[in-house]
Amino acid sequence: MDDIKFNKIILFVNSLVPLALLAWDAYWQKLGANPIEYFLRTTGVLTLVFLFITLSVTPLRQHFGWNQLIKFRRMLGLYAFFYGFLHLITYSIFDKSLSISAILGDIWQRPFIAIGMASFFLLIPLAITSTNSMIKRLGGKNWQKLHRLAYIAAIGGIVHFYMIQKSDFTYPILFGMVLAGLLGYRIYAAYEKPKKKLATNYRN
């Protein structure tokens, strides 16, 4: 087993740690007075955190030359999708009793639900096209363009987070600043240093 493979295992296991602790605390009834709300909030925040980590891969490669990081990006992105899926499914089961009409009604009436839902749906094509063969089929350039949707999903996620707060916007604003930094770097890099362009071979 080479180091890359081993590092992937480390990343895989560590990314599951929050879910394992959530499950552990749920089993011992340590999620507090409102476990559903706790699970919802935590999986929502984890989705954004994994999106940010995924989106930080390219800036870190460009800035520090840590090219190997690209090997881990797919897994990070899929974890963002996975936690987003858990978030959506928790809402659908426990808040809406899996009633399609209730969920559609919610989307129609509540902008924050609609925005959250749309952001999640943006991640679906990205997850589907994350395989090597799909990258090949789309071609590096097209694939890259498509996967810029991750930024739109992240912006939507933060707006969704912001809209559910009652008055304390500290965390959504912090998250927004992180995203602005990541996006800002990409824009800066695109204009400043075209010479530092990296190979677009994302297959591994």
């Binding site: 559903i36 709300e37 808040d95 009793s97 902008p111 559910i164």
Partner: peptide
């Protein structure tokens, strides 16, 4: 009468799973 951002038709009683 709903809150502008969420419904007030249902509630989660603490310690219950559904609404």
């Amino acid at each position: 009468v709903d809150h502008p951002r969420w419904s007030q038709a249902t509630e989660r009683r603490i310690s219950e799973v559904g609404r």
